[in-house]
Design a protein around this nucleic acid. Structure first.
Lengths: 346, 346
DNA sequence: GTGAAAGCGCTAACAG
DNA sequence: CTGTTAGCGCTTTCAC
């Protein structure tokens, strides 16, 4: 038997008042008799009345809900960023709807459409790695749905963004390796076509140049971000006639792959080869050796993204896009400090 | 300027047909002239029409959406289980709304209410550790909203559940340690009041008994699941006049804490102390020594939970609750195999 | 084949 | 202070 949920109509009928009165009482509007209000409130409580959010949203044409599409909530960076988003959103009276694309373009598309069918007022998204067609986002904009990007950028999209300075991050990491005595630093990258890859690659190259070292294209290895692929790439690099003595991995997962490969070869870390990763996953501290990594202010990135979106949602006029670049910082651990240790930038 | 989204009304007006016709055409219902349908479809495409999900849900009083409340999506177990849920849900034509309670009763409550206000047809939840009052769930049931629990049980709730056999899991892990040469196995547990704790504790005790070993209450340490707390507890256990030579940690995080404490004390793993964790987080394979752990079929748990919920949603009559107990299995790694290794259960 | 009308549950003028 | 009316965008009889 399916009993229907109690509505304001039920309450109105029972109390011999109009639905408008019930609605007013429930929402605490002024201009209502204390007794009436009390009666309504009491009955609502007793019957466990729950306002139907769908109906309210429909008439108000806003949901006070923001949607998130993240590539993978299992990654520390994203689960932390989401935490930041939720913090700001809840404080501002918004609910948050989470989805994950699992780095799949198809799922990103599906999630986007699901969310954009009136379920949310705006979206915060980090684009899947697989995505190269951005029409779903431009369509969204044309429909006037506010959008904020974080972490993963798309230059073609003229929207607010919260990003990090990839060039500077890679520069700092490379400089750290060189300052710590590396002479040949290799780059373990993701796919070459990602803008993130090319930005970090430039930072890496510029740091080499600043140290008066030549760029050696054979030391730049592009991969697919998987751990197994990273193992392979590392073996290949180490088999070079002139192998590297330092590795900059563009994600911690890649770094773990490198670590495994180096152990397989019996290479001593950090003395023979120093290693730096990206993202500062908590597990880095637990590895042997513990892994130096570029940290991003994940929670703050999330908070800023939420602030930007909410500002747009609450502004009567259109808000021009803002691009925030947040600073990264290097968390130095064992994997990058050669025994004859010299201080950072010493 | 806020242009309103295009509605069937707009299309109807433009085409000089009624909204009913447009609605039919869009949904591919029969009894409509092919030309009319074509015209509608073409215009909808051109104008990028998106059906308003809120309106549809309101009239149908179902959303084809299922809500999830998980304690923390950053944990491998939950992000994997959610993946399983999504797989089944999408295949059945449902969308999935994710929320995380972050182990907070308050947030669990808020999430529940948000979701239950008409946004979802049913819920799949894993109860927060902090939750000891279950009225929000019983209320939900009384309102006829289908609910399925997974991983974290609440015996007071008479709903479908997908769980593991905690007793058997702890028994197997303890037996493994004893079979591998441990004589004094300690238990690093969570809070004593959790049913999960007491079930696993029983499994642990029964395994001891099966090996003819006495139960020693001083070897059972209750904690709060945090890593720092686990470090402390381990130090305390190891300072005992008669310290343990085997540790069963009821989560991998606790196990990591134990690992840290043991390293601080210079205790050799696994020879002096063997260690087994729970949940089989991927990082376990990367620790030194790599960590033996009780694995749960996370994805399958998610899939089963989704199947149970969807079965309820699609059944005309009420469905009696089903409790599924899925098997766990021990993933043996270095941390539990003493040098004088004997085979598992040999 | 198609349209008119009613209604999902709620809010928002506008009267009184 | 309270009720009436209209309507959010869509589906669903029931006529024609």
């Amino acid at each position: 038997m399916k009993r229907h949920p109690v509505t304001i109509k039920d309450i109105a009928r029972q109390l011999n008042v109009s639905v408008a009165t019930v609605s007013r009482a429930l929402r605490g509007l002024p201009d209502i008799h204390p007794d009436t209000r009390q009666a309504v409130l009491t009955l609502a409580q007793e019957w466990d009345y729950q306002p139907n959010q769908l109906a309210t949203s429909l008439v108000k044409s806003r949901t006070r809900t923001i949607g998130i599409i993240a590539p993978n909530l299992g990654y520390y960076f994203f689960s932390t960023a989401v935490h930041g988003i939720e913090e700001v959103a809840y404080a501002a009276g918004y609910s948050v709807l989470l989805t994950q694309s699992k780095e799949s373009y198809q799922r990103e598309l599906t999630n986007l459409q699901d969310l954009a069918r009136g379920q949310v007022d705006g979206l915060i998204v980090s684009i899947s790695r697989e995505t190269s067609d951005y029409e779903h986002f431009t369509k969204l904009q044309r429909r006037g749905v506010p959008l904020v990007l974080f972490d993963r950028d798309c230059e073609a999209l003229d929207v607010s963004k919260v990003l990090i300075d990839n060039h500077a991050a890679a520069y700092e990491a490379t400089d750290h390796l060189l300052t710590n005595g590396c002479r040949r630093v290799a780059l373990l990258a993701g796919p070459a076509y990602l803008s993130l890859t090319s930005q970090r690659r430039r930072g890496y190259l510029d740091a080499l140049a600043a140290h008066g070292l030549p760029a050696d294209e054979s030391l730049v290895a592009y991969g697919d971000y998987s751990q197994t692929n990273a193992v392979e790439l590392t073996h290949r690099l180490m088999s070079l006639p002139n192998p590297p003595d330092g590795l900059l991995a563009l994600s911690d997962r890649i770094a773990v792959g490198a670590l495994i490969a180096l152990k397989e070869r019996g290479v001593r870390l950090p003395d023979e080869v120093a290693l730096v990763g990206f993202n500062n996953e908590p597990l880095n501290a637990l590895l042997t050796p513990s892994l130096t990594s570029v940290a991003q202010p994940a929670e703050e990135i999330g908070r800023e993204a939420a602030r930007l979106l909410i500002a747009q949602l609450e502004s009567p006029q259109p808000v021009p896009p803002v691009v925030l670049i947040l600073p990264t910082y290097l968390v130095v651990r064992e994997s990058s400090q050669k025994t004859v240790s010299v201080g950072l930038r010493a």
